[in-house]
Amino acid sequence: MSIKQKQVITTLATGIFTLLSFSVTAQGEQLSDQQNANLKKAIYCMEIMENRPDLSADKKIDILRNECFAEDYIQHSPHVADGRDAVLALFAKRFKRNSQITTSIKRSASQGDLVWLHQHVQRSPEDKGNAVVNIFRMQNGKFAEHWNVVQAVPDTAKNNNTMF
């Protein structure tokens, strides 16, 4: 199976998972229309960032700037400068440097104006990747603030549970 086919399958699987994940919170409560909209938008934006090899790097940046990141975006990751322009510059370099990066959203949740995405991010199909939890504060349908935690997927574990 080619890398592009794997990326298409990942995108489709994520889309199906997304459809199934709407409507309840992590506590089993019904999601509000706004929470559903925030969750759907966050997943859409993550797909643009990580799983759309059919889009040029410039097109991805245009979509992210216009549809996904608030003008006054706040970044909490210590490895990324603050602001929308900084995060878009980081992704522009990454899109051009490594087009094989993919993500698979394993879990998602929404509460109030916050959205959580638990992801498996891989630099290539052979890469074990990282377990990533991204937390976004949404405002007017865009990422307004971001926190994340990243953990490498190890070669071996002391249990038989996966990280996902």
Rank of each mutant, 00 (worst) to 15 (best):
D33H: 06
N36G: 10
S124M: 07
I105M: 06
K40Q: 12
M49W: 14
R65G: 02
Q111D: 12
R94K: 11
D85P: 01
Q151G: 07
F91T: 03
D72T: 07
I74N: 04
V121Q: 13
E50C: 12
R137E: 11
R94A: 15
Q119E: 13
G141C: 09
T102L: 06
S99G: 14
A57D: 08
Y73Q: 02
K40N: 12
F91Q: 09
K142N: 03
I43T: 08
D113Q: 13
D72K: 14
V133I: 15
K93S: 11
F143M: 14
E47S: 13
V80I: 15
K128F: 08
E145V: 04
T103H: 09
Q27D: 15
N130V: 13
W116L: 14
R107N: 08
N38L: 05
Q151T: 12
N140F: 00
D85G: 05
A42R: 10
Q27F: 06
L114Q: 14
G112Q: 06
L90A: 07
K93I: 05
N148R: 09
A81R: 12
F95P: 09
H76N: 05
R52I: 00
L31A: 08
A70N: 08
Q27W: 01
F95V: 05
K96L: 13
K142D: 05
A86V: 06
D62V: 07
D62H: 06
E47M: 13
D113L: 03
W116V: 03
M138T: 10
N38Q: 05
V133G: 03
L31G: 04
N130I: 11
D82W: 05
A152R: 09
N36M: 09
N66I: 00
L55N: 02
Q122L: 00
K106C: 11
K142I: 04
G83V: 09
S32K: 07
A92H: 12
L88N: 10
R123G: 13
N159S: 14
I74Y: 02
A81N: 12
S32V: 03
V121W: 01
N148Q: 12
N66C: 01
A81P: 11
D33E: 15
S32P: 07
F136L: 10
A157I: 00
E47Y: 00
D54E: 12
M138G: 06
A109E: 07
Q122N: 04
Q139K: 13
H118E: 10
R65A: 14
A42G: 12
D58Y: 01
D82L: 07
V153D: 05
A131K: 10
H146L: 04
D58N: 14
V132M: 08
Y73C: 04
N134L: 08
A131Q: 06
F69G: 02
